[in-house]
């Protein structure tokens, strides 16, 4: 197979992008198109599947195969496609309402099955397309059109949820950090199985500055905790903060106050550590881990499992013959 040199433009469809000016989705779209051009994935083999919501318009803007399906069902549609066609690179794009509310069931089942899907959840902590209701990731007390006295719904922690659903790859990134987004996309693509990437995405119309603690010049260095496999978890303007395990929980301390050996070395294959790190922040208003929480490859993928059974059945029973099948319960002849 010949290698094709792509540019970002090769992945841009001819459709006008219609998100609100200033929406974080533009940056993510650019990051994804840039990644696709560099990834080596052939354009005809990439498929973007989405549900409903602002983020779900994504496939229309990619010059690949794509399906804009129905609310919440993208992981299920993509599961069928990836199972039928393991030769394809199948990507799922949706928002927090699409993936964690109406489609929560499909998301967790796709993750536990380890279908070879790359799932990008744009989390803006709000319903945008329906013009501003609280979402399953909105903070308690949030005042919205549907919660004038403040939301009383406790939000999901997307990282904890994905880990609890037995996901083999769980990562978080940020629309305003395209370099890191690109790295996460690359790692997700390289992972064999379901990869869940939460992308914090600013909705400047209905939930502006939800991630200001992670994006503002003044605060971002104090609050972004970049996780890197095999490296001690330190962060801050001058790396003055560190994460240690204390009473079984990940805890932020002054690096100077603890012994160097007490600082947690990130191990993305350690489920307990991943879960502990997911609990460091419940909403991105303070120090928040970004990066790969978990990446393990000991489990086979669902689509490979299905296709291996087909191959085994064919090798033991031979190709099926319909004329024999309909006679398989025994026959008699009337002369």
């Amino acid at each position: 197979m010949t290698t094709i040199e792509y540019t970002r433009g090769d992945f841009q469809s001819d459709q006008e992008v219609r998100w609100c000016p200033g929406c974080g989705d533009y940056t993510i779209l650019a990051s994804v198109q840039k990644f696709m051009a560099a990834s080596g994935i052939r354009k005809e083999n990439a498929v973007f599947v989405s549900g409903i919501g602002c983020a779900a318009r994504f496939p229309y803007y990619m010059a690949t195969y794509g399906m804009h399906s129905i609310h919440g069902r993208a992981p299920a549609v993509a599961t069928g496609l990836a199972t039928a066609r393991p030769d394809l690179s199948v990507w799922v794009v949706g928002g927090d309402g699409d993936m964690m509310s109406i489609g929560g069931n499909h998301l967790i089942h796709a993750l536990r099955r380890n279908v070879n899907l790359k799932i990008l959840m744009f989390n803006n902590q709000i319903y945008g397309l329906t013009k501003g209701q609280y979402s399953p990731t909105s903070e308690v007390g949030k005042t919205t059109k549907s919660s004038p006295m403040g939301s009383i719904d406790y939000p999901f922690n997307p990282m904890s949820l994905a880990l609890g659903a037995e996901a083999t790859f769980v990562a978080r990134t940020l629309d305003m950090d395209p370099k890191h987004t690109g790295e996460m996309l690359e790692a997700a693509y390289a992972h064999k199985g379901s990869a869940f990437v939460e992308i914090y995405q600013n909705c400047n119309v209905f939930n502006d500055k939800a991630f200001i603690a992670l994006t503002s010049k003044d605060d971002r260095d104090s609050n972004r905790i970049y996780l890197e496999h095999g490296k001690p978890i330190r962060f801050g303007q001058d790396m003055e903060k560190a994460v240690v395990m204390h009473n079984g929980e990940a805890t932020i301390v002054d690096a100077a106050a603890v012994d160097e050996t007490a600082i947690l070395i990130h191990d993305q294959t350690n489920m307990s550590m991943a879960f502990a790190l997911s609990r460091l922040s419940h909403s991105p208003t303070g120090p928040t881990p970004l990066g790969i929480f978990r990446s393990v490859d000991e489990r086979g993928t669902y689509d490979d499992g299905v296709n291996a059974q087909l191959a085994k059945a064919k090798s033991t029973k031979g190709d099926g013959n319909i004329d024999d099948l309909i006679r398989s319960l025994g026959t008699w002849t009337v002369g």
Binding site: V77, T79, G80, A82, A84, H106, A313
Partner: peptide
């Protein structure tokens, strides 16, 4: 399965048809 039949026991009825739609697209 030796007839090339893939069966998918879905998490619910909606996933069953949605996955089938995905397979049809494929």
């Amino acid at each position: 399965k030796n007839f090339g039949v893939r069966t998918f026991q879905a998490e619910d009825e909606i996933a069953a048809i949605s996955a089938s739609i995905g397979a049809a697209f494929g």
